[in-house]
Simulated scan of single mutants.
Amino acid sequence: MVERGRPQLSVAAQCRLLSIPRSTFYRRPAGETAENLALTRIIDRQFMEAPFHEVRRMTWHPRNKSYAVGSKRVRRLMRLMGLMPTYQKPNTSRLAEGRQPYPYLLRGSAIDRANQVWCADITYLPMRRGFLSSVAIMDWHNRRVLSWRSSNTLEAEFCADALDEAAGLVSTRRHDNGRPLYS
């Protein structure tokens, strides 16, 4: 936006009107160093082999070739090259077409004793290749984890096993009066 050779408005006046320092106008970008260019070649070569490597793992490769490099530098160079790691992300929050969300049935209910309400939650943990599914069964009253299981497949069997274990745990831990041992 700043133009040289305008007799009615000097470069200094134009920079002052634009609220930028005059040194910004005169500074020429230095470009990347030879070491950064060598790093970009290493990163690009590794990215072609493993496009799912994130910045942290991509930092290992230049270090293995005896470059002193940190993750911030690798992140900047990857951003400069336009490299974004590709990996599978779980997409479980979107409802299928034509499905309605389940209503919240506990609204207004008072939960005042153990084993009145249980909850279950399935979480996806990212691993080196793919995801690990983990389910936890909890008592809503005291937030105690009754049981949990992990699986590398999203089949119902490991969830049912966790529920069976929670039900077995509660049925074996009762006093004579039928109240749970923990409360």
Results as ranks from 00 to 15, higher is better:
residue 1 M to T: 02
residue 3 E to D: 04
residue 5 G to R: 15
residue 6 R to E: 07
residue 10 S to L: 03
residue 10 S to P: 05
residue 11 V to N: 06
residue 11 V to G: 04
residue 11 V to Q: 10
residue 16 R to F: 07
residue 18 L to S: 11
residue 19 S to H: 12
residue 24 T to R: 14
residue 26 Y to L: 03
residue 26 Y to K: 10
residue 27 R to T: 08
residue 28 R to H: 14
residue 28 R to V: 12
residue 29 P to G: 07
residue 29 P to E: 08
residue 34 A to I: 07
residue 35 E to C: 00
residue 37 L to W: 06
residue 37 L to K: 15
residue 40 T to C: 08
residue 40 T to I: 11
residue 41 R to P: 05
residue 41 R to D: 11
residue 42 I to N: 00
residue 42 I to T: 02
residue 42 I to K: 01
residue 46 Q to K: 14
residue 49 E to H: 14
residue 50 A to H: 14
residue 51 P to M: 01
residue 52 F to E: 13
residue 52 F to N: 12
residue 53 H to A: 02
residue 54 E to Q: 10
residue 54 E to I: 03
residue 56 R to F: 11
residue 58 M to V: 04
residue 59 T to Y: 10
residue 61 H to L: 08
residue 61 H to S: 05
residue 62 P to K: 00
residue 64 N to C: 00
residue 67 Y to I: 03
residue 68 A to S: 03
residue 68 A to N: 06
residue 68 A to H: 13
residue 69 V to G: 00
residue 69 V to W: 07
residue 71 S to I: 03
residue 71 S to F: 02
residue 72 K to E: 03
residue 73 R to D: 04
residue 78 M to Y: 07
residue 79 R to G: 05
residue 80 L to F: 08
residue 80 L to N: 05
residue 81 M to Q: 09
residue 81 M to Y: 05
residue 82 G to N: 06
residue 82 G to P: 06
residue 83 L to T: 01
residue 90 P to V: 07
residue 90 P to A: 00
residue 91 N to I: 04
residue 92 T to D: 04
residue 92 T to R: 13
residue 94 R to D: 04
residue 96 A to H: 13
residue 97 E to G: 07
residue 99 R to I: 11
residue 100 Q to P: 08
residue 102 Y to M: 09
residue 102 Y to C: 02
residue 104 Y to L: 11
residue 109 S to V: 10
residue 110 A to N: 11
residue 113 R to C: 02
residue 113 R to E: 08
residue 114 A to N: 12
residue 115 N to I: 12
residue 117 V to S: 02
residue 117 V to D: 03
residue 118 W to G: 01
residue 119 C to L: 07
residue 120 A to F: 12
residue 121 D to T: 06
residue 123 T to C: 04
residue 123 T to R: 09
residue 124 Y to T: 01
residue 127 M to T: 06
residue 129 R to Y: 10
residue 129 R to Q: 12
residue 131 F to Y: 13
residue 131 F to M: 12
residue 131 F to C: 03
residue 131 F to A: 04
residue 137 I to Y: 10
residue 138 M to N: 12
residue 138 M to W: 08
residue 141 H to A: 13
residue 142 N to P: 02
residue 144 R to S: 00
residue 145 V to K: 15
residue 148 W to V: 00
residue 148 W to L: 00
residue 149 R to G: 03
residue 149 R to S: 09
residue 150 S to P: 05
residue 152 N to K: 15
residue 154 L to I: 02
residue 155 E to S: 03
residue 155 E to P: 00
residue 155 E to R: 15
residue 156 A to G: 02
residue 157 E to Q: 15
residue 158 F to M: 09
residue 159 C to Y: 03
residue 160 A to M: 13
residue 162 A to I: 11
residue 164 D to A: 10
residue 164 D to K: 15
residue 168 G to N: 14
residue 170 V to K: 14
residue 171 S to K: 15
residue 171 S to E: 14
residue 175 H to I: 07
residue 176 D to P: 06
residue 176 D to I: 12
residue 177 N to T: 09
residue 178 G to P: 02
residue 178 G to F: 10
residue 178 G to M: 08
residue 179 R to E: 10
residue 180 P to R: 15
residue 180 P to K: 13
residue 182 Y to V: 13
residue 182 Y to C: 11
